[in-house]
């Protein structure tokens, strides 16, 4: 858990400018933001930092977003962290893949920040009261 009860968000995107903006935007909303540039880094940070929500890009070097999502789900330490896919991919196929692998939401780039914030809020609540399945 982050210091002084701040909610931590892990933002994963291979594009440095994307990471920089996500950090600025989310910090302004009062979140603590940590970033990773690929799937591998994301797995390590998720395990160590235990963020409340993970934002995951799909097309990244090393380990892509879908594979990272699968691995996050397999690891007991990270399985319960809600993941929002944030990606340029937006076909039926892509969206189906996100949900099948257990993402909470799929957001297609470009998007308006308020949509993302809304989904983050819902994801945080999902974590507190996971849906019955």
């Amino acid at each position: 858990m982050a210091p002084s009860g701040l909610m931590t968000i892990l933002a994963v995107d291979d594009e440095a400018n994307s990471r920089k903006l996500l950090k600025l935007l989310l910090e302004r909303e009062g979140f603590r933001v940590i970033t990773a540039a690929n799937g591998e880094e994301a797995l390590i940070l998720a395990k160590v930092e235990q963020p409340q929500v993970i934002l995951l890009d799909v097309m990244m070097p090393k380990l892509n977003g879908y594979d990272a999502l699968r691995r996050l789900r397999e690891d007991q330490d990270t399985a319960a962290i809600p993941v929002i896919m944030v990606t340029a991919k937006g076909t039926e196929h892509d969206i189906a893949a996100s949900f099948r692998l257990g993402a909470a939401f799929h957001i297609e780039k470009p998007y308006e920040t308020k949509d993302l914030l809304q989904k983050i809020q819902v994801a945080l609540r999902l974590r507190e009261q996971p849906p019955q399945t």
């Binding site: 400018n17 780039k109 470009p110 998007y111 308006e112």
Partner: peptide
């Protein structure tokens, strides 16, 4: 495009 839109949003 998304980077531009996020910048506008910021």
């Amino acid at each position: 495009l998304n980077i531009i839109l996020q910048s506008i949003n910021y």
